[in-house]
């Protein structure tokens, strides 16, 4: 299998779907000549022209409203919002329009669109550029929120998302674009709504998504040396939430630790913990543990920034504690 970066996987998915379906077009800030803020769309304007790779003004309401209107009338727009931090100024279009139109018009309309956007924190980007807001959208019935952790999943899930008839927030991670991984050749498609066991284990389930999958895998390596066998469940989408897979894992390991970048209270961990107590309460040997980002706006100092983010050492330490080890 070829090894490519996350960026290349996303790029290839876009390109292949644009070749496959004439109705697929891209829109967003700086996605044309500039190649995209994270260079995912680089070169596509040369191949498909400025009508299918539309560079827009800085207008998030305009972009997501435009995508919704185009989707209602037969196109399959893929919008790029430069980072999830800018999504709030246009959020009404996604939440009140794209997500609700199919339902509130009684199934008479469809909004097949994808909004791609990087989430997460790093590089001292500070308070207004280091957020994980995807849970806000996962809260909304009518939305799908997809968040891959590997190049293979990124490619397969993006292709599925573009072919899907529902409005989808496709969450990338701003520090993962250069991460490499094997990606199957050919028309590689990953179904939406299916979690993936990234590592099998019997003592503890770490339930996570996006970049934190890799922290969980690192922690699992460390714990393995101590004889603790960790199962890593990559949710891959926050809505649909694959409750079945994560519950099956917890029933096997009897311990669950939820790990994510976003804030603690009302975060993804809160929902996962609630699902576990509803569906696997009798199987638990330890209360569900949540590890998340600290509840502060992201500070600038490298020391403070590190302190505000989940740490692998904490995952290892909490896991040991859950198993009664010191």
């Amino acid at each position: 299998m070829p090894v490519i970066t996350m960026r290349e996987a996303l790029h290839d998915a876009l390109r292949e779907e644009m070749i496959r379906d004439q109705n697929v077009f891209l829109l967003g800030e700086e996605i044309g000549r500039f190649g995209g803020s994270y260079k995912v769309t680089e070169g596509l304007i040369d191949e498909f022209g400025p009508e299918r790779v539309l560079s827009t003004p800085i207008a998030e309401s305009g972009i997501m409203g435009m995508a919704t209107g185009a989707a209602m009338t037969g196109l399959r727009p893929v919008a790029e919002i430069m980072t999830i931090n800018f999504i709030m100024v246009g959020m009404d279009q996604l939440v009140n329009n794209a997500a609700k139109i199919p339902y509130m018009f009684g199934g008479e309309a469809r909004t097949p669109l994808v909004v791609r956007t990087p989430s997460g924190a790093a590089h001292q980007l500070t308070a207004q550029h280091s957020q994980s807001l995807e849970v806000w959208f996962a809260y909304v019935p009518g939305m799908y929120v997809v968040a891959p952790s590997t190049p293979a999943d990124a490619k397969g899930l993006l292709k599925s998302s573009i072919r899907n008839d529902n409005p989808i927030l496709f969450v990338e991670n701003l520090v993962m674009y250069n991460e490499k991984g094997e990606v199957p050749e050919g028309d590689h498609v990953v179904p939406i709504g299916k979690a993936d066991i990234k590592r099998e284990g019997g003592d503890l389930s770490i339930i996570t998504y996006s970049r934190m999958v890799h922290m969980a895998l690192e922690a699992a390596d460390v714990l393995a040396e101590e004889g603790i066998s960790v199962e890593v469940v990559d949710l891959r989408s926050l809505r649909p939430l694959d409750v079945e897979t994560m519950i099956a894992s917890v029933k096997k390991t009897n311990r669950a630790l939820v790990l994510h970048e976003g804030w603690y209270k009302y975060g993804a961990g809160a929902e996962v913990a609630a699902q576990i107590q509803e569906h696997a309460f009798d199987y638990l040997d330890h209360p569900v543990v949540r590890i998340s980002g600290q509840e502060v706006p992201m500070p600038y100092s490298t020391v403070l920034e590190r302190a505000a983010q989940p740490r692998m050492e904490d995952v290892v330490e909490r896991a040991r504690f859950m198993l009664g080890r010191k």
């Binding site: 409203g65 435009m66 209107g69 209602m72 009338t73 196109l75 246009g90 279009q93 329009n97």
Partner: peptide
């Protein structure tokens, strides 16, 4: 903003 997309 929907009308941008419909016109487009």
């Amino acid at each position: 903003p929907l009308a941008i997309g419909v016109g487009w």
